[in-house]
Nucleic acid binder design. Structure first.
Lengths: 234, 234
DNA sequence: CGTTTGCTTGACAGCATTCAACGTTGGTGG
DNA sequence: CCACCAACGTTGAATGCTGTCAAGCAAACG
């Protein structure tokens, strides 16, 4: 495993408006920078942490793309999320001091490593950071509730539509086009996340294309009719 | 809506070993008690908070039983969890200052109301409380991942088995029998939580009974073969 | 005691899975 | 450069789990 490290300063990071320190004053930003121990390089396919690993740090995606997955006793597994720049990884570990899922890089990536005990200390000194940490944990909970709703009460078409709209929305927040997106994950990973099989994912993409909602070329998706996708959620 | 209030002291509460202040020293316990503003009575069927309500406080179930549910734009809804004594409600509201789900009492209940800003302040002064708050938020995330796994990759029988085992486990942690449980929720609510219909819930209960795994008398469930239920998860 | 609500059971239809075959892409080595 | 291979993706046919619709029963309530 490749594991170079470099020094990090939140105050000059181009993610500071989307990341943990969002909304902090300049002096606080300077101070809070010390929470980041290092920035880890993770090659495609490598894990940032694995189920059962001791929990010591949270991570923020700096560049690249990750997925998290959980495992059943019976050998089933399921993708529980995809994380892009500025998003937090590792919150699952706080509850039991061990990670309860794998976090795997889907392309060569970099993540800021934030020792949890250090973060706790700084959060006690900087209320704005404490608030933002809680907001991000809460957002994760809200996101998971949305996923549960999707898994529990939507048909395959609606799940995929909701997935694509969510992805487009998050990419847009990062300055990318919201209508043209490149999927970093395979059909199998999409299916795992949505609780459907690869075949159904593939068929549904074909349906969407035939209905004029999308243009699909391998992993490049062009959204032609966003309102049409939205209507599928009703 | 009935809304009596009474004064609360964590230091003498019989839930202190299961609730937010778990693990605190006696002096900390005394101090932390001030985080609780009041204890709210909520009648069966009433909501502690609703989707869209302004977020001001977290709640801890003191007596009784709650469910949370989210709503889609299209009118679907889904139960996202059942909460019993010592469990936290309202974490969803932190991220956007508004609640994103309903919390409804399933029987006459009482919940300690903890103003979030006050909690933030005390958590900065008492590291043990800060740690425990984070642990509870993390536990909620892990719980939700488990629910996603269940919804996404298990058959109806396995979902119901996992649900019953989880319930039995939590009741055991509160000093109740782990083999004999009284369900506070309807078949419909179970189905909503598990992403299956009432009819399937009912049929599955019948199957379990015929297989000698359970004895079912209305909402009273007697678990006859716990290992057998566990095997369904493989 | 009648009404309402919740629960169970049956028959049938449908969406998604499973199993299988085939096409495409990208990397490797001859 | 091309053959080959492995991984990924698409499509088809058949099976099956679960949903839907409908009826009947039990329990709770006023």
């Amino acid at each position: 495993m490749k594991m170079d490290v470099i020094k990090v300063a939140c105050a000059t990071c181009n993610l500071r408006e989307i990341c943990l320190p969002i909304g902090l004053t300049q002096p606080d930003l300077e101070y809070v920078g010390q929470m980041v121990e290092l920035r880890r390089f993770v090659e495609r396919g490598e894990a940032l942490f694995r189920l059962g690993d001791e929990f010591k740090s949270l991570f923020v995606v700096w560049t690249g793309f990750f997925k998290t997955r959980v495992l059943t006793e019976g050998g089933h597994d399921q993708v529980t999320g995809f994380q892009m720049s500025g998003e937090l990884l590792g919150l699952d570990g706080i509850s039991s001091d061990r990670h309860t899922c794998d976090a795997v890089a889907m392309e060569d990536s970099q993540a800021c490593q934030i020792p949890y005990e250090r973060l706790e200390g700084i959060a006690r000194e900087v209320p704005g950071l404490q608030r933002q940490l809680h907001k991000l944990m809460s957002r994760e909970i809200v996101r998971d509730h949305g996923a549960m709703l999707s898994l529990g009460s939507l048909l395959a078409e609606a799940r995929l539509a909701a997935f694509l709209l969510d992805l487009a929305h998050r990419l847009q927040a990062r300055g990318f086009s919201s209508s043209s997106l490149h999927l970093r994950m395979s059909r199998e990973e999409i299916g795992s996340y949505l609780g459907i099989t690869v075949e159904t994912v593939s068929r549904t993409f074909t349906h969407f294309q035939q209905a004029g909602l999308l243009e699909v070329r391998q992993r490049n998706i062009h959204i032609l009719d966003e309102p049409g996708l939205h209507r599928l959620l009703e």
